[in-house]
């Protein structure tokens, strides 16, 4: 059974019916507008990428945390490192990116960049290299832009929905298969960290 968390631009689907005994046991599809960043398309149907779903949300929240703290020396170091990585990946930055963060997923890497106004996501979805769906052919590498504020709001909305409604179910499935809980307190912590930074940012803007 696929469940969906949907924001204005970001959509995440997770299949609660299947579990693979591996470090990335769930199937997850991630889209930003019409761009498929994580997941595959075979015979006309979308299929999930193998995913550690807690890590997936932690990655998105970390991107927002970095977007909201561009002045932090750590974020500046990460940006410098990942600017090199993104160029080695064959992407051409436009030069106005102030934050660049490489998020590593099972069969995809995406680079969450911020210009301070816009969130620009460069992605390389390895599963799409082999797609047989015409609409995704040649779309394994791409870039998609959304207003920064809407990106952060979307990540907060879908993360909250995941944490409230689906993480407890995911945790039960993990316990059924491994005999022990995995725990996702750190995802909640990241969520509240971003909420707080976002509120501060709004206060500054409204002053």
């Amino acid at each position: 059974m696929w469940v969906t968390m949907k924001g204005k631009h970001l959509t995440v689907k997770i299949d609660l019916k299947r579990y693979l005994s591996s470090p990335d046991p769930f199937f997850l599809v991630f889209t930003v507008n019409e761009h498929l960043l994580l997941g595959a398309c075979w015979r006309g149907e979308l299929e999930g990428d193998e995913s550690d779903v807690y890590r997936f949300f932690y990655n998105l929240l970390t991107a927002c945390y970095y977007f909201l703290r561009p002045e932090s020396p750590h974020v500046q170091r990460i940006t410098k490192i990942d600017k090199r990585n993104i160029e080695e990946e064959g992407f051409q930055l436009r030069g106005d990116e102030v934050v660049v963060y490489q998020a590593v997923e099972r069969n995809a890497i995406y680079y969450a960049c911020s210009t301070g106004r816009v969130a620009r996501i460069y992605y390389h979805n390895e599963l799409l290299e082999f797609t047989d769906c015409p609409e995704y052919m040649g779309k394994h590498k791409g870039v998609v832009e959304v207003p920064l504020k809407e990106f952060v709001e979307d990540v907060l909305k879908i993360s909250k929905e995941f944490l409230d409604e689906y993480a407890p179910i995911i945790e039960r499935i993990i316990i059924e298969h491994t005999g022990e809980p995995e725990g996702y307190d750190y995802v909640w912590e990241s969520y509240y960290e971003v909420v707080e930074l976002y509120r501060k940012r709004l206060d500054l803007e409204n002053r």
Binding site: D52, Y54, R55, Y58, S72, H74, N85, V104, R106, I109
Partner: peptide, 13 residues
């Protein structure tokens, strides 16, 4: 690390 705190769950390439 994220600002000096060990990341609980992450991948690197």
């Amino acid at each position: 690390f994220k600002n000096g705190v060990p990341k609980p769950n992450f991948g690197i390439s």
